[in-house]
Simulated assay, not measured.
Amino acid sequence: MVQQTAFAFMFATLAFLVQPTSAEIIHVHAKRGNLEGVLAELDKGVPLEIRSTNMTSDPGVTPLFVAAKFGKIEVVEELLARGADPTIFFTVPDGLYQTGTALHHASRFGYLDVVEALLDAGADPKSYDRYIATPLHQALRGGHEQVAERLIAAGAPVQVLAPSIASSLSEADVERGQVIATGCEICHGKPSSVRQAGDNGPNLWGIFGKAAASDPTFEYSSYLREAELIWDAETLNHYLYSPYQFLPGTSKIMMGLESDADRAAVIAFLATLAD
């Protein structure tokens, strides 16, 4: 009898511990598209911009973000009508990476109605971060052409170019470029005249001056194949600066090099990788 009572107490305690808090209940409703549940929580006084912890989506986001990410248009429209902010750029609590905006995630999953509602409410189609890029990149990455067209119509830049580094190339530090380029080996493998492709990218030997997407041993994204680029100094400068903005939709996994000197150094090093 005592043992049964102990077990009952333990299970009751565990059940209490796993109950969602007020900070989570509204997010659960938002994720499920349960508008009545969301409104009931707001009527209780739960803040409109209350942040989630870990039970529904990305930690630290608002109910609007959750509803947008899961395409719950009725909840999105109601929260926006009540003043929810569609422009917030979320960062995970530990600051290790950027979560992005509600528009980034609605674009990524192709929810055109949600994207339109967010844009109409003032969401920024130009919103950019090196980690998550732009809503346009996310839409194209997911193959959502209609969403991409809507973002472009709202002002999303189709292509962003880097500042010129023409005057820096003659004085570029080739050795520093080689050091920086070692990070590329994770995907492209070690540069070699054998030109063996890496696990996630073609070998960089002979890349300078070469047509993009021309290595027959590697499968490129359609966006890179159709761009008809030549990897000269100017193109590499734009691409290395921000691949997701220079060529939205590309599958390249790279955060970009914001430093002019670093880009010049890498380009100067790549130019040495030739027979």
Rank of each mutant, 00 (worst) to 15 (best):
K190H: 03
S242F: 03
V194S: 13
K210I: 00
A172N: 08
K190W: 00
S167A: 15
G45A: 12
G206T: 09
L39E: 15
A8E: 10
F16L: 13
G256I: 05
Q3W: 13
V158P: 00
G83V: 09
L169I: 13
G100A: 11
D94S: 14
T53P: 02
F7N: 12
P93K: 13
A213L: 07
Y239E: 01
D173W: 10
G206A: 11
Q138V: 00
T53M: 01
D215M: 09
H188Q: 06
T13I: 08
A271T: 02
Y220K: 08
A121N: 01
T56F: 00
T53V: 13
A106P: 04
V46R: 09
E219F: 12
A123E: 01
R108M: 14
E77G: 00
N54L: 06
L257M: 09
T5N: 02
V114F: 08
I186F: 06
A106D: 04
I73F: 00
A121H: 04
G83I: 10
P125M: 10
A271K: 14
L42F: 11
P86H: 09
T272Q: 12
G206F: 10
W205N: 04
A227V: 03
G206P: 06
E41L: 04
T53H: 10
A148S: 13
A268V: 02
T53N: 09
D120N: 13
A121K: 03
G143P: 00
G45H: 11
P125Y: 10
A23G: 11
G183F: 03
E24A: 02
F90K: 00
A172I: 06
H188A: 05
A68L: 09
P47H: 06
S170Y: 07
A181M: 06
A6Q: 12
